[in-house]
Write a protein that binds this DNA or RNA. Sequence first.
DNA 1: TATGAATGAGAGTTCATTCAT
DNA 2: AATGAATGAACTCTCATTCAT
Lengths: 187, 187, 187, 187
Amino acid sequence: MGKREDIIAATGDLIVESGLQSLSFSKIFERAGVGSGTVYNYFPSKETLLNTLYRDAANLMDREVLAKYDQSTSLEKRFKTLLGNMARFVLAYRKELIVILSCSHSPYIAEELRTQITPSLQTALDIFAEGLASGELMPMDPMMAVTMVTGAITAVAQGALDGKYRLSEYSIDQAVDACWRAVLART
Amino acid sequence: MGKREDIIAATGDLIVESGLQSLSFSKIFERAGVGSGTVYNYFPSKETLLNTLYRDAANLMDREVLAKYDQSTSLEKRFKTLLGNMARFVLAYRKELIVILSCSHSPYIAEELRTQITPSLQTALDIFAEGLASGELMPMDPMMAVTMVTGAITAVAQGALDGKYRLSEYSIDQAVDACWRAVLART
Amino acid sequence: MGKREDIIAATGDLIVESGLQSLSFSKIFERAGVGSGTVYNYFPSKETLLNTLYRDAANLMDREVLAKYDQSTSLEKRFKTLLGNMARFVLAYRKELIVILSCSHSPYIAEELRTQITPSLQTALDIFAEGLASGELMPMDPMMAVTMVTGAITAVAQGALDGKYRLSEYSIDQAVDACWRAVLART
Amino acid sequence: MGKREDIIAATGDLIVESGLQSLSFSKIFERAGVGSGTVYNYFPSKETLLNTLYRDAANLMDREVLAKYDQSTSLEKRFKTLLGNMARFVLAYRKELIVILSCSHSPYIAEELRTQITPSLQTALDIFAEGLASGELMPMDPMMAVTMVTGAITAVAQGALDGKYRLSEYSIDQAVDACWRAVLART
DNA sequence: TATGAATGAGAGTTCATTCAT
DNA sequence: AATGAATGAACTCTCATTCAT
């Protein structure tokens, strides 16, 4: 691994261990095993480093959320694939999830990075637009609906990270099913 | 208003404007219009001030969430009262909600304060236990279920604060209804 | 006791317990059981308070050192009375001795207070002048001789306070005798 | 000179000029001509800096006190070498003596550093033990005897520093001789 | 006379960032 | 490219002192 990767890895590890608030450059230098000036060869500021870390994690999550997504399947299947992938992300990528949750309300992260419409978010919005048009889903503001279900899944993941309960494949399915029922139009 | 209230108000305002991370005592002194030492007449440390601020806001929220809660009504009515109150809290108490969300993962706030079972949380857990026993609700871990629906509502509120959409009484009802359907047992 | 005496007593107690460096007005207020402003009715500043405390203790010591001093007795008797009184002061007035030792090198205490020729010091100087003139004592600078023997006795007292050894009437006599031999002219 | 030496020198100078009580880091920065953070590259805290300063001075004094000490010479010669070296220390190392005297009762200096049995102290104790056994010296608690004579010499040195009198090689010899007579057994 | 809330200068310390090597 | 000593602004907090009550 190059120094750049060492620095990013060390930063993520420190956030997982002690949180974003207690993160300092000196700890990063020490953990990464590089000189203090070296970081500035790769990242012009702490802000840039954190944005890079966040973007990397967010991109990974985006890819994972869209994994095995098949546009040709039913609305329900696509919905559950997206949300299920999101929930499973916490099991496979604990570190990256913590980074995302820690950074997502930090002033260090550029506004446009936090509020951008990622491919997975766009896909989710499309699903709701389609379900709204077809009448399969409840008539709600798509952005609010997406915010609600992703908020639900994220909260479930965060609760698991906080040790409130254990998250199994079965309980993930339960949560995803619940989200589907939440938005499904009454029949 | 006394100085104590000035300090608390100034702290809350600053968190709303710039977030918890960029909050400093010097900004609080300046905003509250008091001398730097004055804060320490009321709060022995920054930690104490933030804990007080958080506890006040959390207690207020707890009271508001339990407003008009009537144990003698149906499970559905009670559930929707709780969640509706929570959603409406954001409309009436934007500042307090931001304080709660900002502080809820901060290392400044005492663990026991953040993870305590408040009356409203206990009430929600009781509702799920009752619904589980009667078969009216889906069989899920009650803590996970509560985490999920409160996460959904909180995310909806946060999205409104972030300006993603406007939150009306109608859309609040939509979100609350959706949460009810999410946990309702299939008939 | 009046407030003034309460304040002085509290200050002395705190110096004994924690030393002069960690002495603060807030601790004095609290210990004395008076309001913070009250001190300023009696002492215009911390410096004045400490000077008063020091002067009181120093005056007491001066009186004690001159106790039972009889000008009509032999040089040896007078010498040993003075030094013995000084050594015994530590046994009877531990608090006052600690105050004197703590303050004697503090910048708070006015130069002229620390370096003044007290009655007991003058008496000691007189003894040396007399002994010098009569040839009974070694020819030395009287001030240096007095400084030497009082330094010896003070060090012995300080060592006892520090717990290096226990100080008895017998060991006090030993130390005083030693000081007498130190300055006695060879016969 | 490196920054580290600049800092130590500046700290010593400030103690000589204004005493330990009025010593502050900001004064040290200014005097040493370094940035405020620089001190922390060398000393993690004010306490560490002062302990280093004290230890350096105490070690120097210890070496000087033991200079030309020859175990094979008579008890008297060894005694006078030690005490004479101690007295002469003040003439050659005024700054270091002031540092030692200032720090020796400061809470900043670690207890074990202040109360340790240094080689020179041990040597002095050994001399008294030997003299006691042989009957050459007065029967006294060795620790008290050492405390007494070193207290006498230190007081003499301190008095010279305070400008009470001038200290010459001759007066040093007088003081040392006096100390020897003080502890010498009557013949 | 007695009070204690209010003050602000100054304390020790941290830390993102720079720059000569 | 890599280093780490040096920086100084900003941080939390203390404390002698003032003053309206």
